[in-house]
């Protein structure tokens, strides 16, 4: 550029906002007004814009006027930047954080009803112990185990018990809070 002005922005050096696909799972923590229709607005936004929710957990917060929603979404398939901007446009969404994985404590609970005849019962109980799970129901043929942890731990437990005959399974979806700095 021979425009003579040394401090101009070289167009060639400008980079476009990437904003597209990040390739990893994102955990979005939303503080929303506790009003009728909020869940419908959020769910509707996802479906209208063609975004897929992987998991969704909703519950009260320390303040009765607000609820917290934790949404996990696949950043390999969806432009997270666009998802968060669209969510932020909803008037009922008061705060939105795209949680930084290393600075986040995320937990999920799952219940597994596993086929457990006498001969395999011991092994399942051992798995439960290794995963710090708890047996919460038992019958002659089956056993229900409660496991809590990050999603990958739940998935690992599922892989362990599936060969024994997984009768039913239910997961809550992850909930999360940001980690506090150690000295605070």
């Amino acid at each position: 550029m021979d425009s003579g002005a040394p401090n101009l922005t070289e167009l060639d050096q400008l980079a476009a906002e990437t904003g597209s696909l990040t390739g990893r799972k994102h955990l979005l923590s939303l503080t929303v007004e506790n009003k009728p229709g909020v869940l419908a607005r959020i769910a509707g936004l996802f479906s209208r814009r063609g975004f897929n929710i992987d998991t969704l957990a909703v519950g009260p917060t320390e303040d009765p006027n607000f609820s917290r929603m934790t949404i996990t979404i696949d950043g390999a398939k969806h432009p997270i930047d666009q998802v968060t901007k669209q969510l932020n446009k909803l008037i009922n969404v008061v705060k939105l954080r795209d949680m930084e994985p290393r600075e986040t404590t995320a937990r999920e609970m799952a219940l597994f009803k596993v086929s457990a005849p006498v001969e395999s019962r011991h092994e399942i109980m051992q798995f439960a112990e290794i995963f710090r799970g708890r047996v919460v129901d038992v019958s002659r043929k089956s056993m229900t185990v409660e496991v809590t942890g990050p999603a990958d731990k739940i998935e690992a437990f599922e892989r362990m018990v599936r060969p024994h005959g997984l009768i039913e399974m239910v997961r809550t979806g992850e909930v999360a809070l940001g980690r506090s700095p150690a000295d605070s």
């Binding site: 400008l14 980079a15 476009a16 906002e17 990437t18 904003g19 597209s20 930047d81 666009q82 901007k85 669209q86 932020n88 446009k89």
Partner: peptide, 15 residues
């Protein structure tokens, strides 16, 4: 004025 419009269809270099 709407941040969601920026880089929605065409990626902006200077938003």
């Amino acid at each position: 004025i709407d941040p969601a419009e920026i880089s929605k269809n065409v990626a902006a270099h200077i938003p």
